[in-house]
Nucleic acid binder design. Structure first.
Lengths: 215, 215
DNA sequence: ATGGGGGTCATCCGATCGGTTGACCTGCGG
DNA sequence: CCGCAGGTCAACCGATCGGATGACCCCCAT
């Protein structure tokens, strides 16, 4: 796997509301022989129109677009449009959790920071063209952190109960599944509620999922 | 940001149950001037003991360790031990969802595939030494995919209800919060259950969290 | 105008849940 | 040897939920 890298020709569309930034990117990308900028857009609407007409392989997208629809919405429409969908590589200044998850959920293939080194950007563009994901290190770090989060100390048995709970199973059947009495299930539930700071099963499941207490 | 890279000296411990692989890594890492292999372990237990004694900056960890505790458990103990905790960089053959998430949850700083290019490995080791995350492209791709997943079509109102539901709130108070009657809440709940394929509130919350239907 | 989707409301009833209190047993560590 | 944590069980009661049905309203697309 991970062969030397074929490096095919990639046609890209640049979308950023700052003309200066677009110009800078144009100049920078000009130095990359395999990358051709086929168009540039200053708004989301423009990007959608140009993408439909030019069918670029990759759209380099800023999330902050000033007027009109924002980068996330533009990304969503680009990646959910019918026909030849471009891969969207987000190139932005910020790496907040909200921005990252919204962009990813909208269908972005990669998420790079503008502070990234030029050669990383080139590599990421080629990767995106093939549908492979590239994340800037701080972005990868945040994604990891969100998957990790601290977890409360539940006992094994409590986790068993919680697992069933998350399947929407009633106390009677939880009891049957674990070969214990319904009374015992309720006892465990009470302790789980206490530990998670909730007082209903729905709340318990919410917290459990939130903090990834289940497989 | 992302400065040229300081590249300090990094002391690492290699943990893999295959002697041949360890030898290969040793030879490979020998060619990297800034990386010093201070020890090698063939089992998880050995890795824990050596890590405590040698205090490496980074532990290169295989997830499949044959005998004794596995790589995930070893990682968990390494990263939750008191004192100077090494950063764990997982280096393995497989990129299944289960392996990846378990490793990350256990506290791994990065996740590389053995098929990765040597220079990527070197870079990842330096990154890990500083606590920065590196993911092989396929791994990053999977993580992304899991964050993306398709979502069912809930109406706005249904999402409102679901949001309250996930807070463990009862029907009466959901009704109050949304200025509607309790009967209406129940009607919405029924439709939500149908759409999500469940029949209890706990199940609905589980599915909702699973597919990221909530903010 | 005709109809469907989305939102609202009501009523009835059995099943289930949540709260509380008290109890016994086991294994581990001081 | 005793205490404590974890796991098990019981009985009771009020509150809530889930299931089934039927109905009205508004908006918008056909």
């Amino acid at each position: 796997m991970t062969t030397p890298a074929p490096s095919r020709h990639v046609r890209i569309l640049v979308c950023d509301d700052h003309a200066v930034v677009r110009a800078g990117l144009l100049a920078l990308l000009d130095s990359a022989p395999d990358i051709e900028v086929v168009g540039e857009a200053g708004t989301g609407e423009e990007a959608l129109a140009l993408a439909a007409k030019l069918t670029p392989d990759v759209v380099l997208m800023d999330l902050q677009l000033g007027e009109g629809i924002d980068g996330v919405e533009t990304t969503r429409r680009l990646t959910s449009a019918p026909g030849d969908r471009p891969h969207v590589l987000v190139l932005t200044t910020y790496d907040t959790d909200a921005d990252i998850t919204r962009a990813i959920e909208a269908g972005a293939t990669g998420y790079l920071l503008k502070a990234e080194r030029p050669d990383e950007l080139f590599a990421a563009i080629h990767a995106a063209a093939e549908g492979r994901t590239t994340l800037s290190a701080p972005v990868a770090g945040r994604v990891m952190a969100n998957l990790r989060k601290p977890r409360p100390t539940l006992t094994d048995r409590e986790r068993d109960i919680l697992t069933q709970l998350a399947r929407g199973i009633g106390n009677r059947d939880i009891a049957r599944a674990l070969f214990i009495s319904e009374a015992t299930v309720k006892t465990h539930l009470r302790r789980i509620y206490d530990k998670l700071g909730v007082d209903t099963r729905a709340g318990a499941v919410a917290v459990a999922k939130e903090r990834r207490l289940l497989p």
